[in-house]
Computed example of a mutant assay.
Amino acid sequence: MSLLRNMFGPYKDEIWQQLAQEINANYIEGGFWNQSKVEANIDEWTVTLDTYNVSTGKAHIVYTRLRAPYVNRDGFRFKIYRKGFFSELGKKLGMQDVEVGFPDFDDQFIIQGNDDYKLQRLFQQPTIRQLIELQPEISLEVNDNDGWLSTTFPKDVDQLSFMVVGVIKDIDRLKQLYQLFAEILHRLCQIGSAYDDDPLVELP
């Protein structure tokens, strides 16, 4: 075993290849311009795991992210992240925090959205709350698709998006994130906010 492996643990690509095998997903090796990634199919949806680099001018910050495009039926959007100093500052600046009716959960997270009733229905699903609570850090939201994969998405397609600083190499945590995406996408269908169709096919 190499000295670097002893010091820093297994390489990201080694872990992600193992992840792909265990969840029956596709591991796509990166090249000079592109990072490696893992793509898993959940019914008609594709959940993609990759890393993203942001330059601050003096340094590069690496993020781990997961994204899944889907057809947003009613424009429902939400964002959830753990409470902390900046979240409390945001509340003082007027950011709206919605309580979804589960005190232990509400105490841990800032939850925002454009439909309070849909937020409450989404987080009524106990598995979704449990999987979110398992994440030591989380920023999860529905936002506009950003043209990733050089694909032009239909106008009603949004994406479920997760992003945190650093490279996640914990297989159990990554499996939990894929499960979380599956649970949320299915729940969005149940509450009338998503279609279980291929998001890259125009609806009639």
Rank of each mutant, 00 (worst) to 15 (best):
A194K: 03
Q35E: 11
K118Y: 08
L3Q: 13
F76S: 07
R67Y: 15
R82C: 03
K155C: 03
Y27T: 07
K92E: 07
R77A: 07
E22V: 02
V100F: 02
F85S: 04
G31V: 05
Q124Y: 10
R5N: 05
Y178W: 12
G31N: 05
F76P: 05
R173H: 12
I110M: 15
N143F: 03
E39W: 04
L93I: 11
E99V: 12
V167H: 02
E88H: 13
E133Q: 13
Y195L: 02
D172K: 14
D146C: 01
T64A: 09
V165G: 12
Q112E: 14
A59P: 02
T56A: 00
A182P: 05
D74T: 13
F78W: 11
I80Q: 00
F76I: 08
L140A: 11
V100C: 03
N24P: 06
V62E: 09
C189Q: 12
A194Y: 07
P136R: 15
G9P: 03
Y81N: 14
N72L: 08
K118E: 11
P126M: 08
R129P: 06
V98D: 11
Q35Y: 01
Q130R: 02
P69F: 14
Q135V: 00
N41P: 04
F162P: 12
Y70W: 08
S150G: 04
N26L: 10
D198R: 04
S139D: 10
T151F: 11
F162I: 12
L49H: 01
N145S: 02
I191W: 00
D146P: 04
V201E: 14
V71M: 01
K175V: 01
G57D: 07
Q35I: 02
L93S: 15
D97L: 13
D50T: 13
L122S: 09
F86W: 14
A20W: 07
K169W: 04
K175W: 06
Q124P: 02
E29A: 09
G94K: 06
T51M: 00
I191R: 05
E22T: 03
R65H: 06
I28M: 00
P154C: 10
S150L: 11
G9T: 07
F8Y: 04
P103T: 12
S139K: 08
L200K: 02
Y117L: 04
P136K: 15
I168F: 01
D43H: 04
G94Y: 03
R73Y: 04
D13L: 07
V157F: 07
A20T: 06
P136N: 15
I110P: 05
L131Q: 13
L200E: 00
M1V: 08
D104E: 14
S55C: 08
L188K: 08
G84N: 12
D146Y: 04
R173F: 08
K92S: 09
G90N: 10
Q176Y: 14
D197F: 15
L19G: 05
Q120F: 01
W33H: 06
L140N: 10
R82K: 14
D43P: 04
Q135K: 05
